[in-house]
Design a protein around this nucleic acid. Structure first.
Lengths: 184, 184
DNA sequence: TATTGTTATACTCTATAACTATA
DNA sequence: TATAGTTATAGAGTATAACAATA
């Protein structure tokens, strides 16, 4: 009846992992799986229609969204990658005529990255289509009130995940393996 | 006040993209961002403590979880990658003494992949720790009842995403660009 | 003929470190 | 000296296509 999440833990999960929560683990795993399925829809379309990789699309969206040319360093910060990585991503986009490297008017060490009219055309077609899909899919699956609740839940999870990044790794009780052949 | 999702759309979003929904887009984007933050916690730990990549960990978990040696083809299906990719992942794990390639007793074209005692030790330490983190984080952020609601929402989104994979790409109304310098 | 797994090759994404030009 | 960006190099993950061994 399609009401089961894609990833389930076994009935004996909480016996096997003392202190673990089957519900928490299923939330964690299925949240990732859902996000992966959603992003795959966008990524596949971007690749098939415009031969753009996720990173390429992200750079175009960041520069276009800024409304003005950006320095490579700024792009690197927004994409959470190194400047060396940005250089090769920009090389790729420049070869395909989607971005331009302009000299910075005030500092000759710097560059300003601008998108070309060809890239502007892509963005102007791609973003409405992506946002239409986002609405179709969300509205088809959840009511507005449910979407608000969902957004509230994932906001709390984002906060908790950021906290956890600077917390020690949890140790976890000893596993009780069972119900499977003991090998070795 | 930490009650905002990490990704927000602008106030004029629905004017700029007729037919789009700011709420839907924020759900879509922040769901991905939350999943990424959660997975990064697991991935970083696995890499730092055991020098294992996400794919390497996944193979060990799949074989260990099966409770018996698996054919490479089966591993490829569970990881959603090609057999060619599995070959190189297995090469890596075999070099590090974490899996063994055993001859299949009934079909000499096939192999059976088994994990070594060293890998079993890793899995026995890693999984309890990961599941403890899943519980700590989820229970710290959401009540049990909220977790059940969340799991219900993402189950619906999974179904919708799978449906959408075989549906045509939504077209999206024409964008109304505004409030930014018109370049080119 | 069909299937299993490997090989060879290629591409994307990412990182680090050394380097150049400029500040 | 310090900073911005590039180059060179490396490695992981993935894919495809040709191939050998076996069914």
């Amino acid at each position: 009846m399609g009401v089961e999440p894609l990833i389930r833990v076994g009935d004996d999960f909480e016996d096997e992992y003392p202190g673990a929560s089957g519900l928490a683990t299923e939330c964690y795993a299925n949240l990732w799986r859902a996000a992966d399925l959603l992003m795959e829809l966008h990524n596949r379309q971007t690749l098939e229609e415009y031969q753009l990789s996720p990173s390429g699309r992200q750079i175009l969206a960041v520069v276009e969204g800024a409304g003005e040319p950006l320095e490579p360093t700024v792009i690197a910060e927004r994409l959470l990658v190194t400047t060396g990585s940005v250089t090769s991503l920009l090389d790729n986009l420049e070869k395909r005529g989607l971005i331009r490297r302009l000299p910075h008017p005030e500092d000759r060490r710097k560059l300003l990255i601008d998108i070309t009219p060809a890239a502007q055309d892509i963005v102007d077609k791609l973003l409405p289509s992506m946002h239409a899909r986002e609405r179709d899919l969300m509205d088809g699956a959840l009511s507005t009130s449910e979407q608000r609740q969902l957004l509230g839940f994932i906001t709390k999870l984002q906060q908790a995940a950021i906290q956890a990044r600077s917390a020690p790794v949890p140790r976890g009780a000893t596993r009780r393996r069972r119900g499977r052949p003991q090998r070795h």
